[in-house]
């Protein structure tokens, strides 16, 4: 197995991508991996936020039209991810962090498919009506899986000790930011800050319409 991974790293293709003295090799593959992430996680994340009650005035059904682009993002990342894995196959496959990333991506994709079925499938909720609890739970699980996948992706290059410290730091920072957002929403009651405040603000409009 080790020999196989070594052979993959030493293929002409992997060697060229890794070592070619041009920005069009390694760095460009890496940049496309970031583009794919931005569209895959960015667009699916916004749909999940809508399912959770943000921007409730947005009708759900047309948001399903973003799925082709979300899948393009996924396939760009599958392709560039395979190439990037080939370049350092031995170190990645002996890195527990890499398995965390792969597992989180699997969880996120399963959640994404369930979210899609829940929002745009046969028993889709009405356009501006409430989203069923099950679908909202799936939306939260997808966001958490994406956050873990992106964080684990950032951490592969670091030592286990630094990784542990950084993971704790990310958790604390994320908690503080969510808390800060909650406090700001309480203090200012701004519709744009709080999903629940927005919900309150939009109810009269829904009754009129």
């Amino acid at each position: 197995m080790w020999e196989l991974l070594e052979a993959i790293e030493n293929t002409g293709f992997a060697t060229w991508v890794r070592e070619a003295p041009t920005v069009l090799a390694y760095s460009t593959v890496l940049a496309f991996h970031t583009f794919g992430m931005a569209f895959l996680v960015g667009l699916s994340g916004m749909i999940a936020l809508r399912a959770l009650g943000f921007a409730r005035a947005l009708p759900l059904a047309p948001m399903g039209k973003f799925f082709p682009l979300i899948f393009v993002g996924f396939w760009v990342n599958a392709a560039t991810g395979i190439v990037l894995t080939m370049l350092a196959a031995r170190s990645l496959f002996s890195n527990p962090d890499f398995y965390v990333k792969l597992a989180a991506i699997a969880g996120a994709i399963v959640s994404l498919r369930m979210l899609r079925a829940g929002l745009f499938g046969h028993d889709a909720p009405p356009d501006t009506g409430p989203v069923p609890l099950k679908t909202r739970i799936v939306a939260v699980s997808m966001l958490v899986f994406w956050a873990v996948a992106v964080t684990a992706g950032r951490f592969t290059a670091y030592s286990p000790y630094v990784r542990k410290q950084s993971a704790l730091a990310v958790l604390i920072a994320a908690f503080l930011m969510l808390l800060g957002r909650h406090v700001a929403a309480r203090l200012f009651g701004r519709a744009s800050l709080s999903a629940s405040a927005e919900h309150r603000a939009e109810r009269p409009a829904l009754q009129r319409g």
């Binding site: 960015g42 667009l43 950084s166």
Partner: peptide, 14 residues
């Protein structure tokens, strides 16, 4: 680095 990437996702998503 992690929050730089979260930022990219929010920017492209929003």
């Amino acid at each position: 680095e992690t929050f730089h990437f979260f930022g990219i996702i929010l920017l492209i998503g929003g």
